[in-house]
Amino acid sequence: MEIKLEVNRKHYILDVTEDERLLDVLRNRLGLTGTKEGCGEGECGACTVIMDGKTVNSCLVLAGQADGRRITTIEGVGSRRSPHPVQKALVEVGAVQCGFCTPGMVLSAKALLDQNPKPTDDEIAVGMSGNLCRCTGYDKILRAVRKASEEVAE
């Protein structure tokens, strides 16, 4: 089955199988391995990508459902030369440990700040509530998002 995708501002026409997930398309067909699979069932958020401005778990999106949509993965956010404020804050606050949750965290935080540049602490907690981290205990991640929001809002 053929699908059209825009991923990180590049356009693709891909031949996929019907039961393939967006996660598989990104990792296996496009080699974008920054998107992680932690659970494969919508619980952990490690596979989070932004689809038409909203976060989704790419492990729950079938390739066909992504047809015609605009996707941003971690590879499409920031660069070493110009990191996104969220990426910078996560590094500076010390909110990155094993890093397996980090790409998903970056995308959830980015999507949150894109919509709501000055979130309250509660709004940050809700915005990040679909992403599990087993290492940090969350506190520093939430602090990093707050810090990034201050920079974004400036």
């Binding site: 971690i74 996560l90 590094v91 990155v96």
Partner: peptide, 19 residues
């Protein structure tokens, strides 16, 4: 101090075995 590996992780560059 900033951990050496943090930058690679925030960009999704760090490679875990499945990658």
């Amino acid at each position: 101090s900033i951990r050496e590996d943090a930058w690679g992780k925030v960009f999704g560059e760090s490679k875990y075995p499945a990658d």
